[in-house]
Simulated scan of single mutants.
Amino acid sequence: MGKVDKGSVDISVEEVIALADREWRVMGVIEADRAGLVDDLWSELTGAAAEGLTPRQLLGGDIRGFVRDLAAGAGVRRVSYEFRRLFLTAFAGALPGLVLAWILLWERPLPLEPNLWLLTSQYLAFALLVLVGALVAVRWGMRGTAVIGRTVSRMALLVPLAGALATPVVMGLAALVDYSTALPAVAIEAAIVAAALGEAIVLARRWALAPALGPARAEASGVA
Rank of each mutant, 00 (worst) to 15 (best):
L197C: 10
A200D: 02
L213R: 01
G214P: 05
G214S: 10
A196Y: 02
A191L: 11
A196N: 07
A194G: 03
A218K: 13
A212D: 09
L209G: 06
P211C: 01
I201C: 05
A208H: 03
R205E: 00
E199K: 10
A200E: 04
I201G: 03
A191Y: 06
P215L: 08
A220K: 10
A218H: 14
R206S: 12
A195P: 01
G214H: 09
A212K: 05
G198E: 10
R217W: 04
A210K: 10
G198Q: 11
P211L: 01
R205M: 00
I192P: 04
P215F: 04
E199I: 13
L197D: 11
E189S: 14
L213Q: 01
R206L: 12
A196V: 07
I201T: 11
A191Q: 09
A194C: 00
R217M: 07
L209E: 03
P211D: 02
A190H: 04
V193Q: 10
P215D: 15
L209Q: 03
A212F: 08
A208D: 04
P215A: 15
P215M: 04
R217T: 04
A220I: 08
I201R: 07
A210D: 15
V202H: 08
A220V: 09
A194F: 08
A212W: 00
E189A: 15
G214R: 00
A190C: 01
A216L: 11
L209I: 00
A204R: 11
L209R: 04
G214D: 10
G198A: 10
A220R: 14
E219T: 15
V193T: 14
P215K: 10
E189M: 15
L197V: 15
A216E: 14
L203Q: 13
E219M: 02
R217K: 05
G214K: 05
V193A: 12
R206N: 12
A196L: 04
A190S: 14
A208W: 06
A190L: 06
E199G: 13
A210H: 08
